[in-house]
Nucleic acid binder design. Structure first.
Lengths: 129, 129
DNA sequence: ATAATATATGAACGTTTGAACATATAATCA
DNA sequence: TGATTATATGTTCAAACGTTCATATATTAT
């Protein structure tokens, strides 16, 4: 059964077949993992993270975000598009101005967890090195 | 004060100066945001996420991970290096074999939060589209 | 209507990234 | 000792990514 799954790309031997079997059964589904990587990929960019951390505080329009982050309106607009397609932000239009805000409670929780990790890690680094 | 910060790259006007000021004060530090993006960048790859979700279950050696994920030993080894440099996994050597495991409790929490989001999102998508 | 402004979007470009391949290191075994 | 095996690492290459520039759309103001 594990044999069915095995393939051409792997160039080495199973050393602990029992472990592999057990882990394979417990591991979350492929699709979930792919979606998860996609989600984190979106957070894995300084511009986008900065946009999000700004939106944590308040809804903002494109120009204000661009000004705040000292970046081109176009660059911000492109990134907002990415965030919107991923359903991480939503927008509302008021005349010419488009306001963006967070679309989801989870987002803040994920990022907060990340910040906790980063802070702990920096503490450790400061002590050790 | 906001003027000092403003720069050449931004090509548009502040529309709501009060909002920008307020958000700027509250936003987390630059360094934190950079570190955070770096952290998420690491999670933003299918191979690495798969490695991590395997290690959630049990410590594993390089060959077993390669076999489980049906990838080259080299590819896995390279990614484990990335994960180790980021202090996300640690390893112990036993003869020729090197076992990898999670280095940090936070990691699981971050990824679990991510999974919650992904699942919620997929539910929504299934209903709407 | 025309001009000005806010935002969106397409194309181009340089950079980054992940996998493949070859090879090096280190440990075991014959 | 030499062969084998597990892992690490340097290099190369194609694909993905983010920004810039030019331009399109849409809304307001004159």
């Amino acid at each position: 059964m594990i044999k069915d799954f095995e393939a051409e790309r792997c160039d080495c031997n199973v050393l602990h077949e029992d472990v592999v079997k057990k882990v394979k059964l417990k591991m979350p589904q492929y699709t979930d993992m792919n979606d998860l990587a996609e989600l984190f990929k979106i957070f894995g960019d300084t511009t986008r993270i900065n946009i999000l951390s700004a939106l944590f505080e308040e809804e903002m329009c494109v120009c204000d975000i661009a000004y705040l982050l000292n970046m081109t309106q176009s660059a911000i607009s492109h990134q907002l598009r990415v965030l919107k397609q991923a359903r991480i932000v939503k927008n509302r239009k008021d005349g010419k101005v488009v306001f963006y805000s967070l679309d989801d409670e989870h987002v803040k929780r994920i990022i907060d967890q990340g910040l906790i990790h980063v802070n702990e890690n920096n503490k450790g680094r400061a002590l050790n090195e």
